[in-house]
């Protein structure tokens, strides 16, 4: 037992190290690719303030905030998915499929709709307020889904089905609202529905950073409780975990992470679903390992998707949510066919 625990810990450290190396190398690849090529060496130079003005502008004002946002959003959505799968005991739970992302997106569009005169959506203040609007929307969505799925308890399957329905309703309202604001601008709707890092500037980075930096460690703190859920509700309450209270705290963390991520990245689906599965495959069922590894894989995956989306069909930019969907849907289908 002790032996395998140490072995597991070693394995965890190894995977962690590999992921960090991958993220760092991808970080430099991503910074150097684009319409204006900047070699990795020059990237390093520029980061140490030795580059040309043009290189500084491209890197610091355009590429860097976008990449950091991708890292933060990816980590946030992946951990959110890991928690949701843990508390619902449902392999197919994901903030996107459950409609939490669309709820947050809807709240943001409503926020822009009603407050665009007071707080212009391009201003710095709006970047800080938006995550809160998204949070309210996400909590509202989670509440509605839970309420509608409640029928002498909540079965995982009903939760997913209700989520699909609520998702469709929010999408419809979002479409109507968005077209009401600007009838010609269908693109903005697709941004919210498929996910896109639409406003890559430092304000959003600063606005999102505290959410991720506070909530992921809190989630890690609760990892033990998540492990207990694995045993099933009956056993968990027998072991003295006050199930419902822990469940609602964790649910709130998951919803807040998803909401804040959506505020900056739109409703990116499937990321929160697929990443925890990969993490479980790599390290097993313990959440103190799953959460950090999910965060890193999520960050890596979203950064890769962002780089692919920006470069593969340049000058056309493919919204990152679309790239994520194309990468992860086949895996989802595989999971679907395998699961009972």
């Amino acid at each position: 037992m002790q032996q395998s625990g140490i072995k597991k810990r070693k394995r965890f450290m190894l995977i962690l190290a590999i992921l960090i190396v991958l993220i760092i190398s991808m970080f430099f690849i991503s910074l150097s690719t684009g319409v204006i090529q900047i070699s990795p060496l020059e990237v390093v130079k520029t980061l140490f303030n030795l580059g040309t003005d043009r290189q500084e502008l491209v890197l610091f004002d355009f590429r860097l905030p976008g990449i950091i946002l991708a890292l933060l959003i990816g980590a946030g959505l992946a951990v959110s998915g890991a928690i949701l799968q843990g508390i619902t005991q449902n392999e197919l739970a994901d903030p996107g499929i459950l409609g939490i992302n669309t709820g947050a997106g809807l709240a943001i569009v409503l926020f822009i709709f009603f407050f665009q005169d007071i707080i212009p959506s391009t201003s710095a203040l709006s970047a800080y307020v938006m995550p809160f609007a998204a949070l309210i929307g996400a909590i509202f969505a989670a509440f509605i889904i839970y309420l509608l799925a409640w029928k002498r308890g909540v079965t995982p399957i009903r939760l997913v089905l209700v989520g699909i329905g609520v998702n469709a309703a929010f999408s419809a309202i979002l479409t109507i609202l968005q077209l009401k604001m600007d009838p010609q601008n269908y693109r903005q709707v697709t941004v919210w529905l498929s996910g896109d890092i639409w406003n890559a500037n430092w304000n959003y980075v600063v606005a999102l950073l505290p959410w991720i930096l506070i909530l992921i460690p809190v989630a890690l703190q609760k990892a033990k409780a998540l492990n207990v859920f694995n045993l099933g509700d009956d056993l968990a309450s027998g072991l003295g975990t006050s199930i419902e209270r822990e469940r609602s705290v964790l649910l709130l963390i998951a919803v807040a992470l998803a909401g804040a991520s959506v505020a900056a990245g739109g409703a990116i689906a499937f990321l929160g679903l697929v990443v925890p599965h990969i993490a479980r495959k790599l390290i097993g069922p313990l959440h103190q390992y799953i959460i950090p590894i999910s965060a890193l894989i999520g960050a890596l995956l979203l950064m890769v998707a962002d780089t692919i989306g920006k470069n593969v069909l340049a000058p056309t930019t493919i919204p990152v949510g679309i790239v994520v969907a194309i990468i992860s849907v086949p895996y989802f289908v595989y999971l679907l066919m395998k699961s009972k």
């Binding site: 697709t190 498929s194 689906a269 499937f270 493919i318 919204p319 679309i322 790239v323 969907a325 194309i326 849907v329 086949p330 989802f332 289908v333 679907l336």
Partner: peptide, 11 residues
């Protein structure tokens, strides 16, 4: 899943 996939590619 299939719908999202097809929609993504067509996007």
């Amino acid at each position: 899943a299939i719908g999202t996939m097809l929609r993504s590619i067509s996007s």
